[in-house]
Design a protein around this nucleic acid. Structure first.
Length: 378
DNA sequence: TCTGGGGTCCTAGGACCC
DNA sequence: TCTGGGGTCCTAGGACCC
């Protein structure tokens, strides 16, 4: 049964932004296939008990045992031994996600997909945003069998927080003026941008709740968080945030990484793993006519210390052998003092378009002597 | 308890340039 | 003989998000 909490009237707002968050998405998709699991503790994650993986999603029944996303599977099994563990099936989730997003696009031209199970939908142009939000929930359920929770607010920040207030299958409408009244007593951690580290630092200042954070003087926040982080957090704690919903964002980097099932010390094996990941990244970029200049190697050693080493090439490339060579050179130069837990290769500094080697049209540097004249200021 | 894989953005120092 | 004031690019790491 959908539930609603209404704090404000969207028709009075300058902007109406909906944040739609699917409820326990991966698990819910699996339950569509196996309805007998409904009502049981279910975890989507690696089945192999020896695996070093983490929980991808847990059903609400499993969450009651303290199982949640990103929890190590070994811990999850201990907390909830009776849970049914299902291996992930990304292809199936992608299909379901596309159906869900198609529903959103019927209600707005401005849909920003944030992940497979999440999107912002701009309902500003709609004459009745609250009614639209209800219809979105109804359509998603009718067409996919899945439930979602929606936060409807005058900006993205409040919408995001509100979608979490009434989960699962909830709708929460929340005006800026009533933000602190509704969430002021909740932990400051619910503010996006406050992670474990920031929470710790706030704790040291006796700042526990959203209201504490909203009241905190900026100069004391600034001392622990730095001036710019302090300012933006202070604003967010009062419910101020942006309204722009972007349809598409260009990717800035692409990477592959792998955690070994047991820590590795064999350089030959690791070198070939590095080359394989580098080729995969390069081929994928190349298939989209994207090239990159900076190659980054990531290494996590057994004691869970993570390092990166990067190198910027003279010209952008999508050549698998060139990226593999660069990644291997970075690997060879890295001095390890412990076995390796994880290796990764990424490419950034991306440019689009153009064929083969060399700069794309428009990227070309002006020939010497034709550029703007520089004045010597010395 | 023992920590995935894919990303984004920010900071800070050093090199280098004018 | 005592040391400016920008700017950009590159590298490494940290925090955070889904």
């Amino acid at each position: 049964m959908p539930s609603e909490r209404l704090y404000g009237d969207p028709s009075e707002w300058e902007h109406a932004v909906a944040h739609v968050d699917m409820d326990a998405f991966y698990v819910s998709v699996e339950i569509l296939r196996r309805p007998e699991l409904r009502g049981m503790p279910v975890i989507v994650g690696p089945r192999d008990p020896a695996s070093r993986g983490v929980v991808m999603t847990a059903s609400y029944e499993a969450r009651r045992f303290g199982v949640h996303s990103a929890l190590p599977m070994a811990v999850a099994r201990r907390r909830c031994p009776q849970a049914v563990v299902i291996p992930r099936d990304m292809e199936r989730y992608r299909e379901a996600s596309q159906k869900v997003m198609a529903v959103f696009r019927r209600y707005s031209d401005l849909v920003e997909v944030v992940g497979m199970d999440e999107a912002y939908v701009d309902l500003t142009q709609s004459p009745a945003p609250k009614t639209r939000a209800r219809q979105i929930k109804r359509d998603v359920l009718a067409e996919t069998g899945l439930t979602c929770s929606i936060g409807l607010a005058p900006n993205r920040l409040i919408a995001k927080i509100a979608s979490d207030l009434d989960k699962p299958d909830g709708l929460c409408v929340l005006a800026r003026e009533r933000f602190l009244e509704v969430v002021g007593d909740r932990p400051a951690r619910i503010i996006p941008g406050v992670g474990p580290k920031t929470e710790e630092r706030l704790d040291a200042l006796e700042i526990k709740t959203v209201s504490d954070l909203a009241r905190a003087p900026e100069n004391s926040l600034s001392a622990v968080l730095g001036p710019s982080h302090a300012r933006s957090l202070g604003r967010r704690a009062c419910g101020f945030g942006g309204t722009a919903v972007a349809v598409r964002r260009e990717r800035k980097s692409e990477s592959r990484e792998r955690t070994f099932s047991t820590d590795q010390s064999d350089p030959t094996l690791m070198r070939s793993e590095v080359a394989a990941m580098a080729r995969t990244v390069a081929e994928h970029l190349g298939s989209q006519r994207i090239r990159g200049r900076t190659v980054t190697l990531k290494i996590r050693l057994a004691p869970f210390r993570t390092f990166t080493r990067s190198r910027t090439l003279p010209a952008p490339t999508a050549d698998p052998e060139q990226v593999a060579a660069a990644a291997q050179a970075l690997f060879d130069a890295f001095e390890r003092d412990a076995p390796v837990r994880l290796l990764g290769v990424g490419v950034s500094n991306l440019v689009r378009g153009g064929e083969g080697e060399g700069p794309a049209p428009g990227d070309a540097e002006a020939p010497a002597g034709t550029g703007p004249v520089q004045l010597a200021l010395d």
